[in-house]
Design a binder for these strands. Structure first.
Lengths: 343, 343
DNA sequence: ATTAGCACTCTTCTTAGTTGAGTGCTAACA
DNA sequence: TGTTAGCACTCAACTAAGAAGAGTGCTAAT
């Protein structure tokens, strides 16, 4: 168990290092007004804190730097909540000023503002399209053998995919198809569609239309690889500002990681509510060993959910980011649930 | 007018510098087997070439480096066409192996392969959606006051936009609307839609439905800012490989530029056919003063056009990139015109 | 329990010297 | 007259040595 003095010193070191990015020395600490001990005392305490794994040295005679464990402790126990600047709040709310109908626009804007306010990189996950429900299904033929299938969901999202028509398929065949499909698919979530198609719908259609087999298979193939949640980025190059990323290789690896959808998606799991912080080596990806990721979720409509991630150096301004995310998630949720009530 | 010997020396210098990225000295040149003159002679010629503006020195006693003007001359007069490696051709053609219906997939793949083969950054512009023609127009109501408008084009592209319904608008109102709109809009290109809407369609509708005004205005607002051609990137971080981009600031500016849609679009103007090369300071953007851009176009269907750009350092392997783009544009055009015949 | 004092460590910055690749110019040569 | 060998000179890049400064750990005094 840490003594009060150790807590205080740890806090000062982390706070200071977050600001300055320079190893913190005993003399520097003792000059703070809330500190009443001499440098020598502080050195002793620091030696203890280092032994406990909360601090590290960059070389034998340098000042101290928080370890991942140190940040973890700081985040868990020393993070007295910060209130944010009214100007910043106003800037966040400016996203919602003009009455907007497009969810996508709002999220895009949010990503930009978040990266601007934090000076880190933000990633926003749009609603999980998989869980939208079919509102209307339609098919538009383009030529003799191709057509485009369109699914409108209850939230106004539109999915479309081209597919091949079986030979000799007529316009009236298509019409019959669409009618049956609409009867059977409305209200079904997108992730269930191809199951439903292959099981139930196929049987029904086979009685009405020839080549139903081919048609359905073609359709299933087209809807097979499911739409993923859209990803929006803000401030992709903000990390260039951070001294810890003055190394081209690190930056490159991070940027490449952000181009890889699967990697980005994996930043968000598990998608629980509340604010989650992963620090340095707590991340699975080794490209992220110098990064911290703060994630949270927001709601879209009644049952949809999106997610937010802020990526910065482990020397991140946790206080501020957590506070900002708190405001952002509330405002976003409110705005998107208000404008986007479904049915 | 340059002498033959000067031409030869200029060519050797550019070729060598493209390979090595190191200033080329007279001794080094004289060792090439195609060169029969002594270093001293070469030095004299180089001094002349420098005076003419084709070469530069990085410092008083360094070897020579091609200037932008030097590259320009090289590109215009010394670029004997190169044939590319069968393996590379095969890799390009692998894009089209599996029978694909989705244009977008093909383009995305092409971007990746191009960046891989060149080790530069590739940008591909999808078809100019503006010039697609309306195949079907439909409206799906979502709630009492919102609906989504959907336009399917002759190429199977789908545009959709949410918009507000006037108060008290009924399902049968919408049906009437859609009928009229389909009568009037089919065959119109997307860029003409809102003109057509406001002029012709509005007049017709006012006779049939109340609140037609509000409706049309809402619709116009939604379709107002026109869809831009989709942009696909390949190898965004490839420039990290080039020694000229070992400077964080340059890389950052370039990456930021590539996030700005308008800037990227402007790389492609004027969108003429053939292969165009812009070298260093020939680019408008000053972020690109160390870059060269090679652009070309490809066709999609009968009357659609897309564009390709390769961005690299001015010390780019022009020969190879030009050759690759030649193959790529042909193959892409063929593939997309074959699979995508409209109507 | 705290702190002043001190020897020691390590980074960072500066300075000076060395090496090597390259140049321009002059004079000799074919 | 065009070509080339020779030579003095320049500059970047590397190395080594020294000084400054911030910081530490330890010991002994308070």
């Amino acid at each position: 168990m840490l003594t009060n003095r150790q807590l205080q010193i740890l806090q000062v070191i982390v706070d200071d290092f977050i600001k300055s990015a320079q190893p913190v020395g005993s003399r520097q600490i003792s000059k703070k007004k809330e500190i009443t001990y001499s440098p020598a005392t502080i050195r002793n305490e620091m030696a203890d804190l280092e032994e406990l794994g909360f601090l590290e040295k960059t070389h034998t005679s340098s000042g101290r730097v928080p370890s991942d464990k140190g940040y973890r402790f700081y985040v868990d126990h020393l993070l007295n909540p910060q209130s944010i600047n009214p100007q910043d709040i106003q800037q966040i709310q400016s996203i919602f000023n003009n009455r907007i109908v497009e969810v996508e626009q709002v999220i895009r804007k949010s990503a930009n503002i978040l990266s601007e306010l934090t000076s880190y990189t933000s990633i926003l996950l749009g609603p999980d399209v998989q869980r939208h429900r079919v509102k209307r299904f339609s098919i538009v033929p383009l030529s003799n053998d191709t057509a485009v299938a369109i699914i409108v969901t209850n939230n106004g999202h539109v999915e479309n995919r081209m597919f091949n028509l079986p030979a000799g398929f007529t316009a009236s065949d298509i019409e019959k198809m669409v009618n049956v499909l609409n009867e059977r698919l409305i209200g079904i979530s997108l992730e269930e569609i191809h199951v439903k198609l292959e099981a139930e719908v196929l049987a029904v259609l086979q009685q009405h239309v020839r080549s139903a087999d081919d048609f359905i298979h073609s359709l299933v193939a087209a809807t097979m690889h499911n739409p993923e949640s859209k990803i929006f980025y803000g401030g992709k190059t903000n990390m260039f500002n951070q001294p810890e990323f003055h190394d081209l290789n690190k930056v490159r690896m991070l940027l490449d990681l952000m181009e890889t959808t699967s990697q980005v998606q994996s930043l968000f799991h598990p998608k629980e509510s509340g604010i989650h912080i992963r620090i340095g080596s707590e991340n699975q990806q080794m490209e992220m060993e110098n990064c911290s990721v703060i994630t949270t979720t927001y709601s879209i409509g009644e049952d949809q959910q999106g997610a937010i991630a802020i990526i910065g150096p482990t020397r991140m301004d946790y206080k501020r980011v957590v506070a900002l995310l708190d405001v952002m998630r509330m405002d976003l949720s409110n705005a998107l649930t208000r404008t986007n009530r479904s049915d």
